[in-house]
Design a protein around this nucleic acid. Structure first.
Length: 272
DNA sequence: ACTGGATCCTGATCGC
DNA sequence: TGCGATCAGGATCCAG
């Protein structure tokens, strides 16, 4: 479900709500068989821990405490929500619940169970984070970096920019949107893109992600932020989910194709 | 060493 | 209205 902007929004809200105030009383799982088993024996180490801050790395959410780090990934349908402990009623697909000493609790819900919950020891890097590429909104992600990385890439550019070992956070929606803004055909081979186009692509990715964060993310199906608010960036999508509709630039029809099993939307006339 | 496809799972939506 | 087929914002494993 969520790409970088949606995770960023959830993360900053969690940071607002949890940091420097909450002490964990108890962590319990309703079921631990999500895609990868929830490591309850390790998570028990967080009992009595004080939350320090919440940060994002790629599409992972890291809840830092003085006893260790609660690592999570929302997969396609995962979400976190905060409720008063006393009025908590278990909802369908609630898998994990963190109870705080101040009378509130944090619940992880994930219908498809594609998400991930893990534990990271203090001063270590979890294995899931080891191979991740650069953050798209950092200065490390620039034209020179992209050119070097794509030199040996024989996949279509759309697939390449979704590769989390190259650059993190770009998923199916923002890949299509960024390529449209950069006027690059998603089928074009990554190692065949001229330098000026790569410069444009870097800029487009940064712009699209930044604008989406400002809008509170995209709510296509069931994404909601912590405060159960929907994002608004779906209203700014120019190609995603627009097949058959008119291109805003040239008035021809937006096309839908399938790449590596995922939908890609683009304008055949504007994107060469 | 690469690449694309199948796979994990539930729920919403589409077409007959 | 009902029912099966298809599709969904992700990541990983496997085969060619």
């Amino acid at each position: 479900m969520p790409e970088l902007p949606e995770v960023e929004v959830v993360c900053s809200q969690l940071n607002q709500s949890l940091s420097n105030k909450k002490t964990i009383q108890e962590i319990s799982a309703f079921r631990n068989d999500i895609r990868s088993e929830i490591p309850m024996s390790e998570l028990k180490k967080l009992n009595g821990a004080k939350v320090q801050n919440v940060a994002r790395r790629a599409k992972y959410i890291l809840i830092y405490t003085d006893h260790g780090i609660l690592l999570s990934h929302l997969g396609m349908t995962g979400s976190w929500r905060i409720e008063p402990s006393t009025s908590y009623v278990q909802q369908k697909h609630d898998h994990l619940r963190v109870t705080f000493k101040d009378g509130t609790c944090l619940i992880y819900q994930d219908p498809r169970r594609f998400g991930y919950i893990g534990f990271q020891k203090l001063n270590t890097t979890h294995s899931k984070l080891l191979k991740l590429g650069v953050e798209p909104l950092s200065d490390e992600f620039n034209e020179a970096y992209l050119k070097e990385k794509l030199m040996t890439k024989h996949s279509p550019i759309k697939i390449a920019i979704m590769d989390q070992e190259l650059v993190v956070g770009v998923g199916n929606i923002y890949a299509s949107e960024a390529l449209f803004q950069a006027q690059i055909n998603p089928k074009k081979l990554a190692n065949k893109i001229p330098k000026p186009a790569l410069r444009k692509l870097v800029q487009s990715i940064k712009t699209v992600l930044t604008q989406a964060i400002i809008s509170g993310g995209s709510s296509i199906k069931n994404y909601k932020s912590l405060e159960l608010k929907e994002g608004a960036y779906q209203n700014s999508h120019l190609v995603y989910n627009k097949s058959g509709k008119t291109c805003v630039k040239c008035k021809s029809k937006i096309k839908l194709i399938r790449q590596a099993g995922r939908s890609t939307f683009y304008c055949p006339k504007c994107q060469k």
